[in-house]
Design a protein around this nucleic acid. Structure first.
Lengths: 168, 168
DNA sequence: TTTTATTTTCATTTTTTTTTGAAAGTTTAA
DNA sequence: TTAAACTTTCAAAAAAAAATGAAAATAAAA
């Protein structure tokens, strides 16, 4: 397969995967494009490569920066901004995990904590089933949370650091 | 908080979480409703509780069955079907992991394998960057795949079985 | 068989999400 | 300053996803 064709397929596949996981298809595609680009690209280049509008490119790039996956670069003597993507898959995975933890896991744990305090009749099956579900999910979410914290700090830890190397 | 209010909040939160992870909000809500229902419900009951149409309820319930999260039940002497949800969070997590692995991980690994075979000039930075990205992602995906396999079989394994108990 | 209860399908409508593009805003340089 | 280069915003349009509901299909009972 030729590079040009392979690049397009990769961008398409990454976009599809993203959309299946609740990430805007275009955002995943811009990310894919920047990941496989050795040099930083301008907004104009992103627009042209992916045939998207200026507004869309601008907002998507900003989102990617918010996710910590892309950084703005300035070239001396040039006025326009360049965008460069982190290329280390391990760091990418970390950033995504961190963001989703912050955006989704933490809020749901907060709600589950509130719901755990529901009061009712212990003999009522509806109450018992509800309470058990919420408690169990809360427990699991708490464990996932702790494990993620541990993994995100794992680089500093000799034991988990060595376990994580298995994934690299 | 009263049970009725807590139930509504739980259903809403579960729906939101689902939609953030690429799962149809209604499907997540139906799942939430069945999870906290001690008894199996009829299509009619699901429709009324969540104010959704018959068609929607029917298709959503079928999807949940496909995901292995809900089962059809028949009560003797009754003509209509009842739907009952698995309540063990651990089993739910397993089923979701299995399905997403099958639906998303396996296909993307297949594509990455194809893309790994791209031919080009080793001195071309565009080629090198592409190849490195694809290879690294492929490696990571392969490791995630292996780890999931291991975890999904872990119940049978004394060592990982005991590690997984930490999550329960 | 015919009737009745129940489930499934799917063309159409509705809702939600995403994209566009032109105007407004900002920054640099002349 | 003023103008040119570039970026951001956001109301409106377009596209995509989800939901509706009535008709068709199916299955059990009379």
């Amino acid at each position: 397969m030729e590079l040009a064709e392979a690049r397009l397929k990769f961008i398409e596949a990454w976009g599809k995967l993203g959309s299946e996981w609740g990430i805007n298809r275009t955002m995943a595609q811009v990310h894919a494009l920047l990941m496989i680009s050795p040099e930083a690209l301008t907004t104009e280049e992103v627009m042209n490569e992916l045939s998207i509008s200026r507004g869309n490119a601008n907002m998507t790039l900003r989102d990617l920066i918010d996710w910590g996956l892309v950084e703005k670069q300035h070239k001396t003597g040039e006025r326009k901004e360049y965008f460069y993507a982190e290329k280390d898959v391990w760091i990418i995975a970390r950033r995504v995990a961190e963001e989703r933890k912050k955006r989704e896991l933490t809020p749901i744990i907060k709600i589950l904590d509130q719901l755990s305090e529901v009061k009712g009749d212990e003999k009522d099956p509806a109450f018992k089933t509800f309470k058990t579900s919420v408690t169990d999910i809360n427990k699991l979410a708490g464990n996932v949370n702790k494990t993620l914290d541990m993994m995100l700090k794992a680089e500093e830890n000799w034991f988990f650091g060595s376990i994580l190397k298995v994934f690299k």
